[in-house]
Design a binder for these strands. Structure first.
Lengths: 240, 240
DNA sequence: CGACCGTTTGAATCACCTCAAGAGCGGTGG
DNA sequence: CCACCGCTCTTGAGGTGATTCAAACGGTCG
């Protein structure tokens, strides 16, 4: 099961960067160890110097930033097959934390091993650089989302992104996908209060766009939702 | 003059990543051409497929995102010695635009040349990957800034970042630095209205923290300002 | 001088927040 | 098996930080 997520990760990188079979095989030889985290568990603390990077096998991770006043901002979500802290290979000191949003299984890959394959194969180094750049594009998009959009559009945009990254958003106008976050976590990600997230979710439900129950998000009108959110998936650089 | 910014760029990368003299020299052989832009000029349009990357020689550039409704978000500022779109080497299709905030001189470097040195020297590829990752860290920090901080603290944080990146913020409790933005551009970067930016600037001035006149920002109380903004420069990964 | 751009200020409005409290629900323990 | 706890979700009422609208001011440039 964890290995499935690992091969999803290698396949995605290989496809996105057009790696050769030999280079893909090189990635597949990376040593991994499996770790379990419970909901709210800390995977990487802010300021920590890491020696291994993470791949999400199952569950949901969030990159978190805590302010002096105790407020928390989530600046990215990561699901199965994502590598939340690939950047730690080149910047081992984490400036922000990494937390499990829900119970999660995480694969750890030593920086040393990633550095080794990067030094041997420049194409791999460039592929990993590309993956990090996509994470950066997503972060820039989040700035825009939080900075410019009103609450309803903002939350809608977040759901659009997660649906698109999950791959569910290719299945017509209605579909559902796994996104196990609490309203509190949605509020931390969008910069709104829990109370307001709750009200906005009701609005989206009443407009027949989206419903959320437990960890499952049901998109009822994908075209309506992405129109509302002004969502354009180019920044995700999706492959398949 | 433009060449000075170019060597500032190579020096910064070499220092941050501990490149050898030989690798640094490799960077110095990159071919560049010089271009001039007037204020508000578009350097890269959203959706454009680029073949060259930029280095700022003088002036100020902003990464810009335009929404359906016409609102604009600036998601990053770039000053002399910065490479705003290094990521375009691995992601040539720009998902956001790049504009001159003020009259600027820009150096263009062909992707092809950067790819060449990256393929030859993995250490250079990794160094460039590191630079992109720092840009990503900054973007994540902007998400937090826009998502969590109130107007006064938010604007203060932006000024802290620009002061720190400029290098001016090592000169004691009072200093000034170049940051040629209009209040309109500050509002696009912070997600507030021009009117409110104006009021917040007055508050910062009245509190004896900071004054802005023309393109010059005068920090009157650096310790007060960074305390107010809850500013921690770790995310910038400064070198010298 | 007139046009334009950026800045400044006032007054009214609103999107979102704060405070407060109740309801649902799974987990734990007596 | 029920009482209790903690967590998440939900809803109401009132408050506020920031917006919107409007207008005036100063500097610059053709």
């Amino acid at each position: 099961m964890p290995l499935q997520a690992f091969s999803r990760w290698t396949k995605r990188i290989a496809a996105r960067s057009g790696l050769s079979d030999r280079e893909t095989e090189e990635l597949n030889t990376l040593p991994i160890t499996v770790e379990n985290y419970e909901a709210q568990g800390e995977i990487v603390g802010a300021g920590e110097v890491t020696t291994r990077a993470c791949i999400v096998a199952s569950g949901l991770l969030g990159r978190t930033d805590i302010l002096k006043g105790g407020q928390r901002q989530i600046t990215a979500f990561y699901a199965s097959g994502d590598m939340p802290d690939l950047h730690s290979v080149v910047l081992p000191r984490a400036s922000t934390g990494l937390h499990a949003m829900t119970a999660s299984v995480v694969l750890r890959v030593p920086h040393e091993a990633i550095n080794r394959v990067s030094m041997v194969s420049p194409a791999i180094a460039i592929a990993l650089w590309r993956e990090c750049s996509i994470d950066a594009e997503i972060a820039h998009t989040w700035v825009t989302n939080v900075g410019q959009r009103q609450a309803v559009e903002r939350l809608a945009h977040l759901f659009c992104e997660m649906a698109a990254r999950d791959g569910a958003a290719r299945e017509g106008n209605q579909f559902d996908f796994l996104f196990p976050v609490t309203q509190q976590q949605l509020s931390d990600a969008t910069g709104m209060t829990v109370v307001h997230v709750n009200r906005v979710l009701r609005i989206l439900r009443q407009r027949g766009m989206l419903a959320k129950s437990g960890g499952i998000v049901t998109v009822l009108d994908w075209n309506g939702l992405r129109g509302l959110a002004d969502f354009n998936n180019e920044y995700l650089h999706l492959v398949n």
